[in-house]
Amino acid sequence: MLEFILERGNYWAIIGLMMIGLYIAFAATNLIKRLVGLGLFQTSIILFYISLSRIDGGTAPILYGADLESGHGDSEGVEAVAEAGHGVADAAHSGAGELVNIYSNPLPHVLMLTAIVVGVATLAVGLAIVVRIREAYGTVESDEVQEMDLSVALAEAVDEVGETQAASGAGAI
């Protein structure tokens, strides 16, 4: 039971962080605080992916030591085999699986690396929209923005009713 908890404690901690981020994005009325909450949520998701990609006893996915040497040796072997007229894919497969060291899974690293940069770019778009909202409404609190929208809509509706009543009154006369 203790082993089960220790093996998954990381995931639970990350889910806890994720939920704090979600709470901020949900509860905060200030739009900038909301974006900070979304950023927390995003960082937690990245933490989750990276912790899935870890392998016990592995290192960072950068070839070192014997693997680097054997890599070059293999490439010469590939050339020799290709010259001999064999398929390149077969040669690549013969070179595969002969690594000396253990490495973490590089694929989640690549996906999350680009996700971070794209995340900051979309954050910039969000902040730009917040700046425009501040210029149009004079506030960045979402409940105040909603109230202003509602009062404007009500005023316009009252105006329309008044106009139609005036028009029908004129028709009756």
Binding site: I55, G58, I62, L63, G71, D74, P108
Partner: peptide, 27 residues
């Protein structure tokens, strides 16, 4: 090391990079 995420295409990239790309940084 035996999870579904760590046995698929990601580990395939690790084992093929030395012979196909010959760049030390797999990422």
């Amino acid at each position: 090391a035996m999870s579904a995420a760590n046995t698929g295409v990601g580990i395939d990239y690790v084992s093929r990079t030395p012979s196909e790309i010959a760049v030390p940084n797999i990422v």
